[in-house]
Every structure is written in C-alpha cells, then in structure tokens.
C-alpha cells in the first residue's frame, strides 16, 4: 500500500526554496531528481544534513571550504556527488537560498 502527500512549497524564480522550514527530505528527493541526481545516496545525505545543520546554527549556508573541512565529504567527492555546480545544487536540494558567498 502506498500513500502520497501533496505539498505546496514556495520557490523563488530561480528554483530555490524561499522558506527553509518548509523543507522535507522527500522534497530533497524530488529536487535532486530534477537536477539529475538520482538516487540520493548516504554520502549525498551526509552533505545535505551537514549544510542544514550549519544553516540552523549560524543562519548562513556553509561555504564549500567548510563543507570540505567539516562535513566528512571532501571537495573532490563533493564535485562527484553534485556535478555541474555543487554550490547551487546543494543549496537548492537542501532547501536553502541561493549561495551568495565567493568561496
């Protein structure tokens, strides 16, 4: 037996969620699939969880440098997990806004 749920989630015009609190892991799966990342493996989740935790702690998304140093997933692997633009992809899938930093 399967159940489906319908959720209305707000996005800005570039496809980033406007309210991080509306995010659920199921949304992450859908967004990842749109970005041709399918399936989300445990390594993907490690990054997503780290990024959301850091955001909750500091109110800002961590830089890729911080992800490299503290998430347990390093730069090379990060680019393999989220090809073609990890900065934007990770933020989008994790339900956070477009990254504005330079690093």
């Amino acid at each position: 037996m399967t159940a489906t749920a319908e959720l209305t989630v707000k996005f800005d015009k570039e496809g980033f969620m406007t309210d991080p609190n509306e995010w659920t892991p199921a949304i992450a799966e859908v967004l990842a699939r749109e970005d041709k990342i399918d399936p989300l493996t445990e390594r993907h989740w490690q990054v997503i969880r780290f990024v959301r935790d850091e955001f909750q702690k500091s109110g800002e998304s961590p830089t890729l440098r911080t992800i490299n140093k503290k998430s347990g997933v390093q730069t090379k692997e990060l680019y393999e997990l989220f090809p073609q633009g990890p900065a934007k992809k990770v933020a989008r899938i994790a339900g956070l806004g477009k990254p504005k930093g330079c690093i």
């Binding site: 890729l64 680019y79 090809p83 073609q84 633009g85 990890p86 934007k88 330079c102 690093i103």
Partner: peptide, 10 residues
C-alpha cells in the same frame, strides 16, 4: 576566487 566560483557553478 574566479576560478573557484566558476567551478562551484559548473
């Protein structure tokens, strides 16, 4: 910075 930013965007 520019090379890194480029890579971050794919």
């Amino acid at each position: 910075v520019l090379a890194n930013a480029a890579r971050m965007m794919g």
